[in-house]
Amino acid sequence: MGSLQRLGRWTLGVLERLGRGHLFLLRTLLAMGTLVRRPGLLLREIYSVGVLSLLIVAVSGLFVGMVLGYQGYITLVDFGAAEALGTVVALSLVRELGPVVTALLFAGRAGSALTAEIGLMKTTEQLSSMEMMAVDPYKRVIAPRFLAGVISMPLLAAIFSAVGVAGGYFIGVGVLGVDSGAYWSQMQASVDFHEDIMNGVIKSMVFGVVAAWIAVFEGYDATPTSEGVSRATTRTVVHTALAILALDFILTGLMFGDI
């Protein structure tokens, strides 16, 4: 009986949290209107969420692209198809690695910071004092951070993919001696703008919404103690990673599954 009760309590707890998360998202979306009148709030958050993530995303993209250049070449050269290296590098970056790795890096670099910041605001009762002064924390704190994440993610993913393609070019053409014209022409022949690049952009938009949502919600929902904030930060990274990988599987099935 006791274990059944624990199971029930756990299930109800999960459902309650899910419900709170969705109500939170709804209130955030409703609070979005103020950002039209005060774009300065949004700019500051895009700076801390997007611009400060730029370096890690660009450097990771470069290395991932260079690794793809090596691994793709080693596999393809056995089949005499080293010219298809451009296709391999571009398709894997644009379709999968760009959106997914960027979202994972985003969760670690920006998502955890968002959670810790909002959680500490709650712990030190800054959010309650805002409410005392009739300032809506959803409008002042949550909505700008959420929207900044949503806007930054597709841009970061595009930068990741572009830098990665350049990294693959550097290794494939510069180091391993694949023909430069073949690298680009094979890539252009098999990468479709609507099918591949736009689907990648849609993926990164979805990931942006999910990653930003989880980060701000975990911060807002954190237990207001130092331990609670640290737990919320961990949960942000873990939950975002799981949600993004599972969503990526579903989106890939929907977008590319019907071949």
Binding site: L43, R44, I46, Y47, G50, V51, L54, A90, V94, S152, P154, L155, L156, A158, I159, S161, A162, V163, V165, W184, M187, Q188, A189, V191, D192, F193, D196, I197, V201
Partner: peptide
Amino acid sequence: IEITVGIFVALGLAALFMLAVQVSN
């Protein structure tokens, strides 16, 4: 802040443009 955000957005759009023109068909 405004200038760096502007650079960031321009970089992102430039990357998307490069993917559209140089990488895809």
